[in-house]
Design a binder for these strands. Structure first.
Ligand SMILES: [Mn+2]
Ligand SMILES: [Mn+2]
Ligand SMILES: [Mn+2]
Ligand SMILES: [Mn+2]
Lengths: 141, 141
DNA sequence: TATAAATTGTAGTATGGGCTACACTTTGAC
DNA sequence: GTCAAAGTGTAGCCCATACTACAATTTATA
C-alpha cells in the first residue's frame, strides 16, 4: 500500500524537486506569453523562441504541451493565447518571480545575477517560503 | 558568427537556467554518493535509489552518466566510487547546499520547507549569489 | 500582382530521466 | 552447503526538451 516516501525524508524532497522541474518550463512559457500578449498584443512562436533562446520548433512543441495541459490555445499562423487557467498561472508566476528577485537584491546580490538566478530559483520556492520572503521584505522595509 | 545570446538578455538567462538544470542531477548524485561513502563506507545503487526515491534501474543509468562525465567509477556488484573530480564536486555541492538552507532559515523559512526548497534552489545559485549569501549570514551573525 | 522573405508547422533524431520486467549474482538464513 | 531473498544489471518503453532540415503559409516588397 505505502507508495509515497514518508514526510521529511530525502526521497520526498528529491521527488518534490523533480515535480517542480517538470512544471518549470510551463511556468516560464505562461509568464512569457502573458508578457508578449500585454506588450505586443500577440504571442508568436518565433517571438517566444527568440526570447527563450531556443529554436522555433522547440517552442512550438512546448506550446503543444501547454495546450494539452489546458493552459493555452493557438490558432495556426495567428499566435498563442492563454486560457483562464493559463492567465492565472502567469499571474502567480510573475508575482513570485518579482518577489524572488527582490529578496536576492535585498540580500546584496547584484541585479543581473539576481535576475539570472531567479529564473531558475523561482520554480523551487514553495508557498511557505514565499510567505517568509514577503514577510522578510516587509519587516526590512 | 554571433551565436550565444547577448549578455543581460532574457534568452541568456533562460539558457543559463537550462544548463543548471542539466547538471542538477549529477550534483545531487555526487553529493549523495559522498555521503554514503562517508557514512556507510560504500555506495550501492539500491541505497542511492532509495534515498533519491527512484527505481534502482534509474539510479544505475544516471551512475553511467556520472562515469561518462568522469565523476565516478563503479565495480560491478561492488558499488560506486567518486573520482577526484567527483569528490571535488561533492564538496562544493555540500557547502552550497548548507549555505542555501542557512539563508532560507535566516529569512524565517521553517526547517522542513527550507530543506525541501533548497534541494532545488541550490542548483541555480551562482557563485556571485553564493558570496552574497555568505556575506549576509556573516553580517547578521 | 508577382515574387522574395519571414514565419510557421512537421518530420526525424538525440539525450536525459523516469518506469517495469526479467535475468543474473551475491548475500544471508537455515 | 543449499536455497531463498536481496541486490544488481539489462532491455525496452514513455515522455520532455532540445536540435536540423524541409515544406507550407503568410507577409512584405519590388
Ligand atoms: Mn524561470
Ligand atoms: Mn521567470
Ligand atoms: Mn539538489
Ligand atoms: Mn542538495
Amino acid at each position: 500500500m505505502e507508495k509515497l516516501p514518508a514526510e521529511g525524508t530525502q526521497a520526498r524532497r528529491f521527488g518534490k524537486t523533480r515535480f517542480a522541474q517538470s512544471t518549470a518550463v510551463l511556468e516560464d512559457y505562461a509568464e512569457l506569453i502573458a508578457d508578449l500578449l500585454a506588450s505586443a498584443g500577440e504571442a508568436r512562436p518565433t517571438d517566444i523562441a527568440r526570447r527563450l533562446g531556443v529554436s522555433h520548433a522547440t517552442a512550438i512543441k512546448t506550446i503543444a504541451r501547454l495546450k494539452r495541459a489546458g493552459l493555452a490555445t493557438a490558432r495556426p499562423y495567428r499566435g498563442v493565447f492563454l486560457t483562464e487557467k493559463g492567465h492565472a498561472l502567469a499571474d502567480r508566476v510573475r508575482v513570485r518571480h518579482r518577489l524572488v528577485v527582490d529578496v536576492l537584491r535585498a540580500l546584496g546580490v547584484p541585479s543581473e545575477a539576481a535576475e539570472a538566478d531567479a529564473e531558475g530559483i523561482e520554480h523551487h520556492v514553495s508557498e511557505i517560503t514565499l510567505k517568509a520572503f514577503a514577510q522578510f521584505l516587509k519587516l526590512r522595509g
